[in-house]
Design a protein around this nucleic acid. Structure first.
Lengths: 299, 299
DNA sequence: AATGTTTATTCATGCTTGTGAATAATCGAA
DNA sequence: TTCGATTATTCACAAGCATGAATAAACATT
């Protein structure tokens, strides 16, 4: 039995909460994972995990073994890293989660440059805005906008995204161009971006000096995905408030027209969020450095 | 790569000083050992051992890696042991070194009882009296008589062996039976047991109350191996002072006859000697307990 | 300088392990 | 209560690794 591999496999099951998810995150067949954990249990003469086909619970012995060995695994990784770091380029898998527009507008177009610099890093990119259980899902980091509320995680700001309020030219011709945020409540409609709960659209925010306004025009259409949100704006369904980096190509081509630029609200902070780890993997570190530079360049 | 196995293999090479000896003590082919160490070096991107076909030296990085990982290996073994010890009988290899007479007269005849109790322990028994480099040769313990001088090792006394002074009946008929130790210097010869250097025979020792004597009859024959020593005495070559446990079967059969029983010197202490280890393996512990009981019974 | 012995490494083959697919079991929804 | 979906485990086979034997190199002796 490869005990180290078995211990890592077992730890993954504990963190993931079930075998299938653990196998996925380890990119390993279920059968292999099952066998590794069984071999470890046989070696120790102890049942580490109590499992049915639908549920896996960690036994008391399993929890103790996990605690004790997790520390050893980290130490070994530290030792290995301290030996290899001077000689080897970062390599291995990197799992990242981010919003659709960050992915399609900023990260993915620039990835060739990152992968050219680090050809041995293999990226798995998940596109979502949902709250991600970083440790449970074995995600190395997520990129998120807005305040980070989970204080068990490290949040490093990578930039701020300015807002723009815009619509298609045909929309402005049909409804008139507003001169003040209040004008939006009369004879205008909103293409809403649905927030976390997916139930209510976010209001439009405006700021000028110390003045801050929130305006909620009638919502004709709401959507919770940023590409679809842009498509709706382009189709002339209403006014949209979105990130400038999302709208940029359409603003440049004239497919969208910005209004009230002097009323732009404060830029929206973006963070890369990752679990605290005494030793951050080198590949994660170079990615964080890169995305910080890249994000600044994209704003 | 099975990194744990590779680390253990590497550690063994460091301790043994060369690949062949390390492979022997791990009961592993040289090719396997070579591949494991190479895989570890490749994984770390560092050369751990500098080797020619006749010489292996540990690099500075290798020494550092050995120190750091040896501790982790011990911790992992501790963790495993603390999990398994309640459930599993001791198993695995045990390497023991001892003198020829201890081996053939005490230990080997009783081994069936030990192996019946612990069928999963596999014993490698080396017969020698020489100073053994316990760690370098991966020996779990040695059984030695007399003072233990190496203070880096743990010496646990397992018993004391009484002495007898005896010779074949034909010898006594030819030379007369001594009534006092001094009588041995006149008309008697010694079958000598050669000591550590193999150059000079050990003198005969006698004690009665506070009286202690050393007598050195002329030596007709000397030998450094206890079975040959006994054979010489049985052949009537002279007087021999040996352990009672060695002579017992011949004393019982009348093939040897003891003299001066009231002048027996102090019994000779025997120790089981092993390297200090924060966690003694279970199989070593049960062996030590067993040999202590067995030794007492054999005296 | 040559040679023999000993030791580390490499190569081709047999054996052990990893895994795809099938099976069995569990749990939630209807 | 039944059924369908999902998950853990098992089995038979393919892939990869361990190793015996051969090779190459180093070192001590003559």
């Amino acid at each position: 039995m490869d005990q180290l591999q078995a211990i890592r496999a077992f730890a993954r099951v504990v963190e993931a909460g079930n075998f299938s998810r653990a196998a996925d995150s380890l990119q390993m067949p279920n059968a292999t994972l099952t066998k590794l954990v069984q071999a470890l249990e046989s070696h120790l003469g102890v049942r580490l995990l109590q499992r049915t086909t639908r549920r896996v619970t960690v036994t008391a012995e399993g929890a103790a073994y996990y605690e004790r060995t997790a520390r050893l695994l980290k130490e070994l990784d530290d030792i290995d890293a301290s030996f290899g770091s001077a000689q080897r380029k970062p390599r291995g898998p990197l799992r990242i989660d981010m919003g659709a527009s960050v992915a399609s507008m900023i990260v993915i177009p620039a990835l060739p440059e990152f992968l050219a610099a680090y050809p041995d890093i293999r990226i798995s990119l998940a596109v979502s805005d949902r709250h991600t259980n970083l440790i449970g899902e074995n995600v190395d980091c997520v990129i998120r906008g807005g305040a980070v509320t989970d204080e068990t995680l490290v949040a490093r700001q990578i930039g701020s995204a300015p807002w723009v309020t815009c619509a298609a030219p045909a929309y402005w011709r049909a409804h008139g161009t507003p001169q003040h945020p209040h004008d939006l409540c009369d004879g205008h409609t909103l293409v809403g971006y649905l927030g976390g709960t997916g139930q209510r659209a976010l209001p439009l925010r405006f700021a000028q000096g110390a003045d801050k306004l929130e305006v909620m025009p009638p919502q004709l259409f709401g959507v919770n995905e940023s590409n679809a949100h842009a498509a709706a704006g382009l189709a002339g369904l209403g006014i949209m408030q979105t990130f400038r980096y999302t709208a940029r190509p359409y603003l440049l081509s004239g497919a969208l027209v910005e209004v009230l630029p002097e009323w732009r609200p404060a830029p929206y902070p973006f963070y890369v969020v990752y679990p605290p780890n005494r030793h951050m993997s080198q590949r994660l570190r170079v990615f964080i450095d890169w995305i910080t530079a890249r994000f600044a360049a994209a704003m």
